[in-house]
Write a protein that binds this DNA or RNA. Structure first.
Lengths: 107, 107
DNA sequence: TAACGACATAGCAAAGTCGTTATGGAGCTC
DNA sequence: GAGCTCCATAACGACTTTGCTATGTCGTTA
């Protein structure tokens, strides 16, 4: 794929991504990483986001289940993953979220 | 305050309802019934909406499939059904759609 | 009454979703 | 290197979604 262009938001994919209680909650948690997750040693909450392990713990599902939920959100463009020394941090892709909201307002 | 009725909108149900290309398109068609559907004899396009038969034709699926899609939208509260002398007309429930948009803006 | 048209429901099969456990790669520490 | 943690993928089962055809109900019409 090429450079990230938020205007090419796949509405159906984004809607299916958030039409799940787990993933909707993840998106809400990621609104404030510092407030909703424990302190991290290796990544900045604001700049990089929350790591998969913390999300797994909060979701109370298995680690692979959380991992796949994050993959769905990433592939929908709503979340950005940052790999960093063994950990993977996830943060919201606000331009994409805004694009989604904008498209939904025309619904 | 306008007609911002705080309905008991089930966010997950509403999201799942529109997270389908068929149903999303139906919602868009229902934005302008008079423009998107043939003239009706027995029901007013604006007041009552479009009948199941026209939606079936536009969707290019079987009549039961269209009927079930409409049921999902009705049960999500996004569409209102009006039975009238053998026909059933469907129209958007704008307050519910507005409530959905409002909730999504907080995402 | 009989026939027809519009719609809903039942029943079935293919495909997708979402949980699990098992396994493997990448990076850190000793 | 050995061992550990974090994360992703594979493989499987249970459940849900979505298409179809067949059938039933209801209201109108001849």
């Amino acid at each position: 794929m090429g450079a990230a262009v938020e205007e090419s938001l796949d509405l159906e994919k984004a809607l299916k991504a958030i039409a799940s209680p787990r993933r909707l909650q993840i998106m809400q948690w990621l609104q404030d990483v510092a407030a909703n997750f424990p302190a991290q040693v290796h990544g900045d909450p604001v700049k990089h986001g929350a790591c998969n392990l913390f999300i797994t713990d909060k979701l109370e599902v298995s680690q692979p289940a959380a991992s796949r939920h994050m993959k769905v959100l990433v592939e929908a463009g709503l979340v950005v993953a940052t790999a960093r020394s063994g950990w993977v941090y996830y943060r919201r892709n606000e331009p994409a979220v805004d694009a989604l909201k904008h498209q939904l307002l025309a619904l």
